[in-house]
Design a protein around this nucleic acid. Structure first.
Length: 182
DNA sequence: TCAGTGATTAGG
DNA sequence: CTAATCACTGAG
């Protein structure tokens, strides 16, 4: 019960913005550290809010059949080939914007799908609620004044399991435990 | 379980 | 130009 109270009282507390070095590591090192971090965002109304990230998934390079970079470099996936710390945004099923954070070094395409924050579980629901759309494509979390991540000095135990919604990727990639959540 | 919905992509 | 695909969601 105490952890619930702590989550709530800490929610608005500001932390330290994560720097480039955090993102330029391998996605499998970065992704497990993202749940528990705060996402700071300027909402459509103009107010700045903080949301605790609760669930993410790792997509790792041109070998990962579930990763959009698997099919090579296209206009859509271009930003994944840039250095870590930028946003990869795309539309799915004609309705939902997906929010991803690019990781790794330049020309090593990787990204982390943000699947949920504390108040808005679900990748499509959180982008809709927070007003995240194509205009965030390529946004740099190191310099942006409307969205970034911050460390609030809490280490949360992270659980893990297989990624969601990638049946097409085949048994090997589908079963990799690359989903991380609180 | 299943339809909605439209950008993106590869292929003529 | 066409047609298939799709890191989802909510209704029944």
């Amino acid at each position: 019960m105490e952890w619930r109270i702590k989550l709530h009282t800490d929610r608005m507390k500001s932390g330290v913005r994560l720097s480039r070095d955090f993102y330029t590591r391998d996605v499998l090192d970065v992704a497990p550290e993202v749940p528990g971090k705060n996402m700071v965002i300027r909402l459509p109304g103009g107010s700045q809010e903080r949301f605790r990230i609760t669930e993410v998934e790792a997509y790792r390079g041109s070998e990962d059949r579930a990763c959009h970079a698997f099919k090579g470099r296209t206009a859509r996936t271009e930003v994944m080939f840039d250095q870590g710390g930028k946003l990869y945004i795309y539309l799915i099923y004609g309705m939902y914007w997906m929010l991803n954070i690019v990781t790794g070094e330049k020309d090593n395409p990787q990204a982390i799908l943000i699947r949920g924050v504390e108040q808005y579980p679900g990748p499509g629901k959180l982008t809709k609620s927070l007003g995240i759309d194509k205009s965030f494509y390529g946004e740099d979390l190191i310099f942006s004044d409307r969205i970034w991540l911050e460390d609030i000095g809490l280490v949360q135990p992270v659980k893990f399991g297989p990624r969601i919604g990638i049946d097409y990727a085949g048994e090997y990639w589908k079963t990799k435990p690359w989903r991380y959540f609180l």
